[in-house]
Write a protein that binds this DNA or RNA. Structure first.
Length: 541
RNA sequence: GCGCCCGUAGCUCAACAGGAUAGAGCAGUGGAUUUCUAAUCCACUGGUUGGGGGUUCAAGUCCCUCCGGGCGCGCCA
């Protein structure tokens, strides 16, 4: 039995690349992808089109030669190699697909792992909220994306860590403290005018009560309040299965050497100028639209200034790349931040990605949210309405760039319309089949996999084969939504297969054993895929 | 006014360095179950990819322009 290469897709790519080199002395990158239709085979590449101008002979002639050569080299794993209208298509043998099942079931925790990350050390910062109130829905989306990305990238060979930055310093903290003080007085029967820049919101009343009960001293108020809210935010995220490797406070950054370091480097490199008593950073040297203030006329640093210091701090910790996931209202911030890090000597080290906005739908209507009035839907509230699994899945169903309509009623539904149930049910059904098999003394067996010859079985195995490619794509594009989409496709095929065919038939023990082996592979892959997006794989539903 | 994102079927969305007949789900219509979970499956209907122009063997994808929706443009964070 020929052993299949660890990464089939890359293996095919290398074979063709080598063939091109030896046969035509053309050195080029070859990329295979899933064929749009099974009739075209399993993998296809359009390199012939791309090379058209460089080819020494007509495209079909070259295609024929390559086809022949590649087929020779792939005899042990492929049935057909052909060129059709310029595409090179490869159809793998059933044997190869069977071997993939073996690979999955022999080592479920390794299947799909790739090394595209090459050990690159990544810091993923997401959510990073002000400690002035509960987390909202956009934060929830960023949390889904960020935490899933961390899981996916680590599976793809990166070394990714997650980080939460708390803006627990500056003017806003003062306003926050004033707001709590107002509540304290009110609770003590003293009515005052609410501070003009204060934070509305009943949750501050609870904090005021705690302050009174615990007898917190005045000078310790800022820290007590920001820590309390930060803790609440982190607890909510834990309920969402988001756990951080690092939590950093702005207060810590302000006390550190990094603000001074930023100032010194920018000054030495002559990226600073003074105007109206303030210090400006010439971010325009790096493509920003206007210079940015870093030290105000009154001598205090801007948020941007401390954020630069914070990013410098992260870089000093040794990361190869920083990734920030920000809300849609921050895209104007990207240019200046990138400019800042370039000026500090780290061009290209920061990648900022934007998680677009979220609208919540209930009873077919959008829930109105107004930040100004302090009316917004919190992650806590959402988690009271829908399950964590549904929420995480829904937040990942769209590309990051697209606005997301989150239909709360749909997320609560049980049934096919709700993709998260559809997908989780695939896992529960697999488990149920395995259980049912045991009751009839039929267990998954791999010695007769050639009995798996239905078209549906081939489609299913083929889909399992694409899992490593999916993980790799998700990691490289930083698009976790590849995973939910993959799962939905797999579920379509699986449920269809189940519906049409009897998996367990005590009269056909060999066939049943082979089919259960396939079911087991599905279960293993589904479980892993769900883990990568932080969704549970239930044994029963 | 400038910048970023979006515009694809009635609705919500896919479409992987530009590639094969633009695909799914929901909704609608019609069907399937002596069952291993019907919490399911099958079939049909549904498209000028916002409009126009350009580049290319090939454009939903790239360029220009116009229209529409969202967000941002502080010595706020």
């Amino acid at each position: 039995m020929a052993k299949i290469p660890r990464n089939l897709k890359h293996y095919l790519e290398n074979i063709v690349k080598e063939t091109l080199k030896t046969a035509f002395n053309i050195d080029t990158e070859v990329i295979f992808e899933e064929t749009p239709k099974p009739e075209f085979g399993d993998y296809s590449s359009n390199f012939l089109f791309r090379l058209k101008k460089e080819l020494p002979q007509p495209i079909q002639t070259v295609g024929d030669i390559i086809t022949l050569e590649v087929l020779k080299k792939l005899q042990h794993i492929a049935d057909e190699v052909s060129t059709q209208t310029g595409f090179l298509n490869i159809k793998l043998s059933n044997k190869t697909l069977h071997n993939i099942l073996l690979e999955i079931n022999n080592n479920p925790d390794e299947y799909g792992k790739t090394n595209v990350g090459n050990g690159k050390y990544i810091n993923l910062e997401f959510v990073s909220a002000n400690p002035t109130g509960p987390l909202n829905i956009v934060s929830a989306r960023a949390a889904s994306i960020g935490d899933s990305l961390k899981r996916i990238m680590n599976y793809a060979g990166y070394k990714a860590e997650s980080e939460f930055y708390s803006n627990n310093a500056g003017q806003q903290v003062k306003h926050l403290v004033d707001s709590v003080k107002w509540w304290i007085k009110k609770l003590q029967g003293i009515n005052e005018v609410f501070p003009p820049d204060g934070y509305r919101g009943e949750y501050l009343k609870d904090i005021a009560k705690m302050v009174i009960e615990k007898g917190i001293e005045e000078e310790k108020l800022p820290k007590f309040i920001t820590d309390t809210i930060l803790n609440e935010q982190l607890e909510t995220l834990k309920a969402f299965d988001v756990h951080y490797d690092h939590v950093t406070g702005e207060d810590f950054i302000r006390e550190s050497k990094f603000p001074g370091l930023v100032l010194r480097v920018l000054k030495d490199e002559k990226f600073l100028f003074f105007e109206d008593g303030a210090t400006f950073f010439r971010s325009t040297d790096f493509g920003d639209t206007e210079p940015r203030v870093i030290i105000r006329r009154d001598g205090t640093g801007t948020y941007f200034f401390y954020d630069l210091a914070y990013h410098l701090y992260k870089l000093h910790r040794g990361y190869d790349e920083l990734i920030d996931i920000l809300g849609p209202d921050h895209h104007g911030y990207i240019k200046r931040m990138e400019a800042g890090l370039s000026a500090l000597g780290y061009p290209g080290k920061l990648k900022i990605i934007i998680a677009q906005q979220v609208s919540l739908l209930k009873n077919g209507e959008k829930i109105k949210m107004s930040k100004r009035r302090g009316e917004y839907y919190t992650l806590r509230e959402l988690l009271r309405e829908v399950k964590k699994d549904a929420a995480r899945f829904f937040f990942l169903m769209r590309t990051r760039d697209a606005h997301l309509d989150f239909d709360i009623d749909l997320a609560k539904k049980i049934g096919k319309e709700n993709p998260v149930y559809y997908v989780q049910y695939m896992h529960a059904r697999s488990n149920s089949l395995l259980k049912h098999g045991r009751e009839h003394s039929i267990i998954p067996k791999c010695n007769n996999l050639r009995l798996l010859r239905l078209p549906e079985e081939r489609l299913l195995m083929r889909r399992l084969m694409y899992f490593p490619d999916t993980v790799e794509r998700a990691a490289q594009r930083m698009e976790p939504h590849e995973i939910p989409r993959y799962l939905i496709k797999l579920a379509d095929i699986f449920h269809n297969y189940y519906q049409k065919n009897r998996i367990i038939d005590p009269k056909k023990p060999e066939l049943s054993g082979a089919r259960l082996y396939l079911v087991l592979a599905v279960k293993n892959v589904v479980k892993k895929a769900l883990y990568l997006i932080g969704v549970n794989a239930p044994e029963e539903m």
